[in-house]
Amino acid sequence: MASSTTGEKKILTLKGGDNEEFILEESLVLQSELLKNMVKEERVSSIPLPSIKSKTLVKIIEYLKKHAELTPSNKEEFKNFEKEFVNVVLEELLDITVAVNYLKINGLLEFCCQAVADRIKDKSVEAVRKIFRIESDFTPEEESEFRKETPEAFEGDLDDTTN
């Protein structure tokens, strides 16, 4: 497919998992190592991303736009934007993180992962289990032994709200 251009700017279409299309400037997607390689090597103008939900893609494109506008004078504003960006329910944050990992947007990946890490920081084992829906498959005997051996592992914040 030939790449379409309007004026100087190259335009690219991204197709989300539910076939929704997003039209954006090619320069924006160069922040993604994966898309950059696709665009540079194969000269495509439309890229299907079936594994990424449109809702997630909307968020990521929003980030790419903001990041492209980043200058020394709006650093503060960008930081606030980043903070809000990861201020979503855990499910959504994990979706974004996985998609960002797939797209290889390195700075954002580290940031999202840190945001996930912050959600479980200082949490008790029970809370982390609930947050990540990890089912303990230890026998009650094993569990009580761990508690005796390493009581400190079971301390921490019991709050298991996932947002």
């Binding site: 994990l94 990992n101 990946l109 580290e110 992962c113 890490a117 990540f132 829906r133 089912e135």
Partner: peptide, 16 residues
């Protein structure tokens, strides 16, 4: 019932 963290790629868990 899906354990949320098991769905994540290993490198993502490592970064988290």
């Amino acid at each position: 019932e899906i354990d949320r963290i098991s769905d994540l790629p290993a490198n993502v868990v490592d970064i988290i």
